[in-house]
Design a protein around this nucleic acid. Structure first.
Length: 449
RNA sequence: GGGUAGGUGGCAGAGCGGCGAUGCGCGGGACUGCAGAUCCCGUUUAUUGGGGUUCGAAUCCCCACCUACCCUCCA
């Protein structure tokens, strides 16, 4: 398959030797607040990407970091007057909860930055030894000028970067572009011991420390939001390639586009961040996933309630079909082959999920037609749904409270037979309030949610 | 100022040299106690503008205009 690589600015064939582990690292969140829809978009994309690689029989190892020490965490802790790690624990727990609720379950290991302080110190020491870093009164900095390739990922000329630099001035730094590897302790801040005194790691160094420990000098694919290209990922390259002397750090750089909300960029100042928790109150995770599947992962895309409602319709159709074939044994015949090929092939073309979605819709139409027939394509439908769900995680399989529900439906059936539509309609609307929908087809009724 | 990606119907969004997908919305019909779901038909010139290459361009080239994002913490 092909995937777009930010470094080379082009589609690259994904080389995955047979049976070999494919090492993937995706930048996780800084845990100081609840996850928002932008997080959902990025992590759902990478979840589907990894699921698909596994579906193809490859062996990705999906590693994600959690930034659990950072200025924003400290700031929040101080404002609540609690230890910093109470904040990081609270919001990392929140993050895991949301990831699970969104059905993002493909991560193999979550690495907390503060568990890798030794590795971080080791990397900074080596950068010092090799002349890439220097110590000042307030920390240790990476000297960007020492690394000739600085700017290669974001395709920026270092002199242009300087010209447009809007970074805050810091008398201690040799160049405004230099970034902190180690921040010396200030009052009321958490700290660890180091050769440069008590302090805490800079943001960029945690990722290379973690990936070196797990993967070494080099690994296969690094992902994250588009906003991380500069300076975060640029800095990672500068750190690791300076230490190893053996570029490249990774073979594929994959970045997801940002999300706006009702056509306005999400930002703290505008206060229009929508948390995932908020959306999950009224919508299925499957609907959220479908919404993002309908977008190209690299585009800047817009989130709208219209779009979400649209996706909910598709999610309900899939569930509707699933419930009709839930008890059928899977069959993999020609229809299975055809639909699955049409649905998965677009993924080989740089994860073209919108095209996959178009073919999923074609499947939905076919399946709903076949369901009414007696010559039984149900086994194939079931098999296709299973595959779709294993890749995309969009088929809701939550069971209904069958026993109780059947009793209620039986009562309603009798009422209808007697022409007592007042009772039957009341049952229908009451159940609807509980999230269970009743649909009549002749004398038979069908319930789902 | 520099960098990157783009401009396709009412909206979202594929196609990237040869009848312009798909979904929503909208209009009509079938079915239904009603509703919903589903199915069928329709939505007449939708490819930013102008040049060019070609038998043929949304797709390739040039120019113009416009948009988004990055260059500062951010998924």
């Amino acid at each position: 398959m092909e995937i777009f690589d930010t470094l080379s600015n082009s589609l690259k064939e994904l080389k995955t030797a047979n049976g070999k582990r494919f090492n993937v690292f995706v930048c996780g969140p800084t845990v100081y607040d609840k996850p928002h829809l932008g997080h959902a978009r990025t992590y759902i994309f990478f979840d589907i990407f990894i699921r698909y690689l596994r579906y193809k029989g490859l062996h990705p190892f999906y590693l994600m970091n959690i930034t659990d020490i950072d200025d924003k965490i400290i700031k929040k802790a101080n404002s609540e007057n609690v230890p910093y790690d109470e904040i990081s624990r609270r919001y990392s727990a929140e993050f895991f909860k949301i990831m699970k609720a969104l059905r993002n379950e493909s991560v193999n290991y979550y690495a907390f930055a503060t568990d890798f302080i030794n590795e971080i110190i080791s990397q900074i020491s080596r950068l010092m030894d090799r002349g890439y870093a220097y110590e000042t009164s307030d920390g240790v900095y990476y000297s960007v000028e020492k690394f000739a390739d600085y700017g290669k990922l974001s395709h920026q000329d270092i002199s242009q970067l300087k010209a447009g630099a809007r970074v805050e001035t810091n008398e201690n730094k040799k160049s405004p572009l230099d970034f902190a590897l180690w921040k010396k302790r200030k009052p009321n801040e958490p700290y660890w011991d180091s050769p440069w005194g008590e302090g805490r790691p800079g943001w960029h160094i945690e990722d290379t420390a973690i990936t070196e420990r797990f993967f070494g000098y080099h690994y296969d694919l690094h992902g994250g939001g588009i906003d991380l290209i500069f300076p975060h990922h640029e800095a990672e390259i500068a750190q690791m390639e300076a230490i190893s002397g053996k570029p490249p750090l990774v073979d594929y750089w994959v970045h997801t586009g940002h999300l706006s909300v009702e056509n306005v960029k999400m930002s703290k100042s505008l206060g229009n961040f929508i948390t995932v928790e908020e959306i999950l109150k009224d919508y299925w995770p499957e609907s959220i996933r479908l919404l993002f599947i309908g977008m190209n992962y690299r585009d800047t895309s817009n989130f709208s309630m219209d779009g979400l409602n649209n996706s909910q319709i598709i999610a309900e159709r899939l569930t509707w079909i699933y419930r009709k074939v839930a008890d059928v044994e899977t069959q993999r015949k020609e229809n299975y082959e055809t639909f699955i090929n049409e649905i998965t092939e677009p993924l080989d073309k740089n994860m073209n999920t919108p095209e996959s979605l178009a073919n999923i819709n074609a499947f939905i139409r076919w399946a709903t037609n076949e369901l009414g027939k007696t010559d039984g394509k149900n086994g194939e439908i079931r098999a296709i749904l299973d595959d779709i769900d294993s890749i995309f995680g969009i088929v809701r399989k939550a069971p209904l409270p069958e026993g109780l529900l059947n009793t209620v439906l039986e009562i309603r059936k009798r009422a209808r037979a007697n022409g007592d539509y007042g009772t039957s309609d009341k049952i229908r609307s009451d159940l609807s309030k509980l999230g269970i929908k009743i649909e009549d087809k002749g004398n038979e009724s069908f319930a789902w949610w």
